[in-house]
Simulated scan of single mutants.
Amino acid sequence: MSGQSLSGRTALVTGSTSGIGRATAVKLAELGAHVIVMGRDAERGEQAVADIRAGGGRADFVQGALGDARSARDVARRASTAAGGHIDILVNNAGIVALGPTPGFPEETFDAVFGVNLKAPFYLVGELAPAMAERGRGAIVNVTTMAAQLGIADAAVYGASKAAFDLLTKSWAAEFGPSGVRVNAVSPGTTRTPGAEILGDGLDKLAAQSPLGYVARPEEVATAIAYLASDDASYITGAVLNVDGGRTAV
């Protein structure tokens, strides 16, 4: 980025106690934003806040588990309070990766995936975007996945939930753009995070299929998220930025 500062802005990053979310929280804080770290694990959340503060940034932690409208509204309320009254940047990063064949896929797992990956961010945006629109400025960045664009065996449910998220990104861009709120998405490829550990050696095998051929670090994805949240991307909305080593290009 060309030195854009996020000083004076507040940011809520869901699922930010580890992985891409944590790296994003750190990056936004480095750019000057007051970051609200949010996640289920209090110990990891407080450690993330402590690390950001040790680096000279400003952060607070809100504990919560997203999964439905009620939890989303609760997180929105508490995060806004912790941020001093409003949220300027929302990064919808919290998600569930659940893999398995279609026959016999547990209904409770299906519902949990769509609850966390789609329903919760839908209602979180419903709570926070109107206030952004009233102020005439805001940025929302959704974290999706290359599995939303590719047919991957055993990833039907996960990919479908994120493909719907891609469409929500475009729908929200149309809905809130006239009020000055930009909505974009980042679509990561293979990234070395705790959530990707379920793939085992498969992570490296997937990465080998991309032109760049390696597994990304969370910080590489966080940089793209921060770009879309910043004024450097002031004329970008409704876009899905692939950060996948070129995997969806071939």
Results as ranks from 00 to 15, higher is better:
residue 75 V to D: 03
residue 69 A to I: 04
residue 88 D to V: 05
residue 68 D to L: 08
residue 73 R to D: 09
residue 101 P to G: 01
residue 161 S to I: 14
residue 89 I to E: 05
residue 134 E to D: 15
residue 109 T to R: 11
residue 66 L to S: 06
residue 105 F to Y: 13
residue 147 A to W: 13
residue 91 V to G: 05
residue 85 G to C: 07
residue 157 V to R: 04
residue 167 L to W: 10
residue 127 E to D: 10
residue 65 A to N: 08
residue 77 R to G: 01
residue 132 M to W: 10
residue 99 L to R: 08
residue 81 T to L: 10
residue 75 V to Y: 09
residue 135 R to A: 15
residue 102 T to K: 00
residue 85 G to T: 06
residue 168 L to Q: 14
residue 110 F to D: 05
residue 125 V to H: 02
residue 97 V to I: 12
residue 150 L to Y: 07
residue 143 V to C: 06
residue 81 T to F: 05
residue 122 F to Y: 13
residue 139 A to W: 02
residue 168 L to R: 12
residue 159 G to E: 15
residue 127 E to I: 02
residue 86 H to G: 10
residue 124 L to W: 01
residue 118 L to E: 09
residue 98 A to M: 06
residue 166 D to V: 13
residue 148 A to W: 04
residue 146 M to D: 15
residue 68 D to W: 08
residue 158 Y to H: 13
residue 109 T to M: 08
residue 99 L to Y: 04
residue 86 H to E: 13
residue 90 L to C: 06
residue 169 T to A: 11
residue 100 G to H: 14
residue 109 T to I: 09
residue 129 A to R: 02
residue 70 R to Y: 09
residue 152 I to Q: 12
residue 164 A to S: 11
residue 124 L to P: 15
residue 142 N to C: 11
residue 163 A to Y: 08
residue 151 G to A: 15
residue 104 G to Y: 09
residue 133 A to Q: 06
residue 163 A to M: 07
residue 121 P to E: 00
residue 135 R to G: 06
residue 94 A to P: 00
residue 169 T to G: 12
residue 83 A to H: 08
residue 73 R to C: 02
residue 124 L to I: 05
residue 159 G to T: 13
residue 108 E to Y: 00
residue 159 G to P: 10
residue 106 P to S: 11
residue 112 A to Y: 00
residue 142 N to F: 13
residue 66 L to D: 00
residue 131 A to W: 07
residue 103 P to D: 00
residue 123 Y to P: 14
residue 65 A to D: 11
residue 107 E to I: 12
residue 94 A to Q: 05
residue 131 A to F: 07
residue 141 V to F: 05
residue 150 L to S: 12
residue 76 A to Y: 03
residue 125 V to I: 14
residue 97 V to C: 08
residue 118 L to H: 06
residue 119 K to Y: 04
residue 104 G to H: 08
residue 142 N to I: 12
residue 76 A to L: 06
residue 163 A to L: 06
residue 113 V to K: 08
residue 93 N to K: 01
residue 103 P to S: 04
residue 79 A to L: 09
residue 129 A to F: 12
residue 138 G to P: 14
residue 110 F to C: 05
residue 123 Y to C: 03
residue 112 A to K: 08
residue 109 T to V: 13
residue 136 G to D: 03
residue 135 R to W: 05
residue 124 L to M: 11
residue 146 M to F: 15
residue 153 A to D: 14
residue 113 V to Q: 08
residue 166 D to C: 14
residue 110 F to M: 02
residue 146 M to H: 11
residue 128 L to C: 04
residue 153 A to H: 14
residue 96 I to M: 03
residue 82 A to E: 11
residue 64 G to K: 13
